[in-house]
């Protein structure tokens, strides 16, 4: 930002000299956000159709963690928080490894969506990766288990719509809105960005759970109206929490992690 008066002193390079940082994010930030994920992992917000147990509310903030910390530190914080969460609140996880990897995928994809510097170029490879996961998910349902293709398509709406938002230029649009000074842009970016990234996180977790447990046809049918509603909840919670957190972080003016998107 331009200043009104020019100083006479030599401008110095400002950097944090403490070594306790992971991928550009201070370890203290990672610990705090992992703690937040862990706490929210204790709050159920829906029942998991097919596999039983519940969804934890923490799913709504995996993207936010990625936007604050960047891809690697975001994945680490979400993963650690998710891991602690499955031990402390097992009722909110059907398959622990799916919960943890879903969290890691969410934190990482969030960091890529908001990616800056070298991470900006990772969008396409990551989109291909999630595309492959979706293909395997569809293959195992339609080809191996004989689920009707139309039903699968409708039941996995939140996943392919997330993938589409990630592949299309919307990803870059969300990125620019997230860093906007205008909260009227940031809040929609948080809502749509959470829809996109949490959808990819859900895809990762759902794929693993389906491989481990599978579920019958009638569950696919019941997912058609239920899962978009649940996903709306995730996006809304992500937008509400994210607006407060990002507004607070901006106002307080703490040093931003190197790959932060806000």
């Amino acid at each position: 930002m331009e200043m009104y008066i020019k100083p006479s002193g030599e401008e110095r390079q400002v950097r944090s000299l403490e070594t306790v940082a992971v991928a550009g994010a201070p370890i203290a930030y990672i610990v705090v956000l992992a703690g937040v994920v862990m706490v929210l992992a204790g709050i159920p917000f829906s029942v998991m159709l097919g596999a039983g147990n519940g969804f934890p509310l923490s799913q709504a903030i995996y993207p936010l963690v990625g936007w604050i910390l960047g891809p690697v530190a975001g994945a680490l914080a979400a993963g650690v928080g998710g891991l602690l969460g499955v031990f402390l609140f097992p009722q909110n996880s059907a398959v622990p490894i799916a919960t943890v990897l879903g969290a890691v995928a969410g934190g990482f994809a969030g960091g890529i969506l908001g990616g800056k510097g070298r991470w900006a170029a990772w969008g396409l490879p990551i989109a291909v990766f999630f595309g492959v996961v979706y293909a395997f998910y569809a293959g195992s349902a339609i080809v191996l288990n004989g689920v009707d293709g139309g039903i699968f398509l409708l039941a996995s709406f939140i996943n392919w719509s997330a993938l589409a938002l990630f592949v299309l230029p919307t990803r870059k649009l969300f990125r620019s809105w997230l860093s906007s000074a205008d909260l009227k842009r940031v809040t929609p970016a948080l809502f749509l960005g959470t829809w996109c990234v949490a959808g990819l996180s859900h895809l990762t977790a759902a794929f693993i759970v389906y491989q481990v447990m599978g579920w019958p046809d009638f569950v696919w049918a019941s997912m058609i109206p239920v899962s978009p509603l649940e996903h709306l909840m995730r996006a809304a919670v992500g937008a509400v929490i994210g607006s407060g957190v990002l507004a607070g972080l901006r106002a307080v003016g703490l040093v931003k992690p190197k790959y932060a998107a806000y």
Binding site: S8, G9, E10, E11, L17, G253
Partner: peptide
């Protein structure tokens, strides 16, 4: 300031011989 808060810093501060931008807060 500025290692924790960031921002732009000009000039030099030395305390007991230590430049405050070249040594960690600890």
């Amino acid at each position: 300031v500025p290692q924790f808060y960031g921002g732009r810093f000009f000039g030099h501060v030395r305390v007991a011989g230590f430049d405050t931008l070249e040594h960690p807060i600890s």
